[in-house]
Design a protein around this nucleic acid. Structure first.
Lengths: 201, 201
DNA sequence: GAGGGTGATGTCACCTTGCGACATGACCGT
DNA sequence: ACGGTCATGTCGCAAGGTGACATCACCCTC
């Protein structure tokens, strides 16, 4: 209930259903049509039938319209870490695999599109990096709640995040056709090889 | 020669020696005194005896005044990677150790101060993340120039960068007194342990 | 040594971001 | 019917960031 099927009958409909979702959609469209820097917040609001000020009430800034999914991502990730009892690095990798299955499966094209927008703007790349960092911090907290010491938690988090980043990059590469979950396992195995102590040379 | 000891004699000295350096210093002072957000670019320029427009000719944006060192960092890092013939992960770690020795030794307090400013502003954190990312990209390129394939180069870079990030975090922690170079070795060893294949459980 | 080029700077005008303050109008309770 | 609440629109403004143009010292050349 709350605010789903409310109708206004006055001459001016002040209230619009799902303002947030409509602004996100409008932003995505405009970023694709003209690019991120070339579209103003006023443009986005107008296309959504709303005011610039309303946009800023729902989003912290212009970039946030592209990052609404990160809350859900963190939620899944933290829960998966909390529920496991595997070794730390394995736990993180498994959590990311879970994310891959729950959030990314069958969405390659959408993810590619979003990625191409982000890749086109330094500002958006910075925001993406920050979201990733916040995610890592949340994972570290979850690991520590499992009883791990800070050092190990941070290292396992960073290593797991590295695996995910690399697997993600391969997944969205133009010629890729593997599953993100499979790529994660693949990269995790490679990481073990790369970091294993070098033999005498 | 070029522009070092030029003097103006006209009634208004239009040209100021080392405008860039003076702007950086002014920015650092003001960020410390009032914080990043509370400082305007006009403030910085005024303290340096220059104009806002001049600031924007020398720096891409307000944050850049804090990141002038990253060029030198990348230079050292890439050179160190190019000159080694060690295994990829070891090469990257060694390169970061070189950076620790050449650029960070005996500068703990300066680095801590800079870090506390950055930590106080999300905008600055984003920029720092982007700088780190750009650094990683440069390292990957350098590794590939050594004949490595893309996958291995990326993984080694990311792993090495993880080691550096964690070591750096420990180094600037309030109670730390180890050398950054030593911490890098310490963390590299831990990473090998954390990612090593789990025994049967 | 006068004149023109060059390069760093100042000045001005402008757009956009992002936010505070206030008004409005629809919904909801009693 | 009345007041409260909440989402929204309107207005104004500080600050970030940029283009266009003027200015002035320096340098080179004739």
């Amino acid at each position: 209930m709350s605010q789903c099927d409310i109708r206004y009958h006055g001459r001016m409909a002040r209230w619009q259903p799902d303002a947030r979702g409509r602004l996100e959609a409008a932003a995505l469209e405009l970023f694709r049509e003209r690019g991120f820097e070339e579209t103003t917040v006023a443009d986005i609001a107008t296309r959504a039938g709303l005011d610039k000020r309303t946009f800023y009430r729902l989003f912290g800034d212009k970039r946030e319209a592209l990052f609404s999914g990160s809350g859900r991502l963190e939620e899944i990730l933290v829960k998966a870490v909390a529920e496991t009892d595997a070794a730390p690095f394995e736990a993180v990798v498994a959590a990311f695999r879970r994310v891959a299955e729950d959030l990314f499966a069958d969405r390659l094209e959408l993810v590619r599109m979003r990625h191409s927008i982000i890749a086109s703007s330094p500002e958006l790349q910075e925001r993406e990096l920050r979201k990733t960092g916040a995610l890592a911090a949340a994972v570290t907290v979850a690991l520590r709640a499992n009883g791990l010491d800070e050092s190990t938690a941070i290292l396992a988090t960073e290593s797991g995040a590295t695996v995910f980043r690399v697997a993600y990059a391969r997944w969205i590469a133009p010629d890729s056709d593997a599953t993100l979950a499979d790529l994660i396992d693949e990269v995790a195995a490679e990481l073990r090889t790369v970091t294993s102590a070098p033999r005498e040379r």
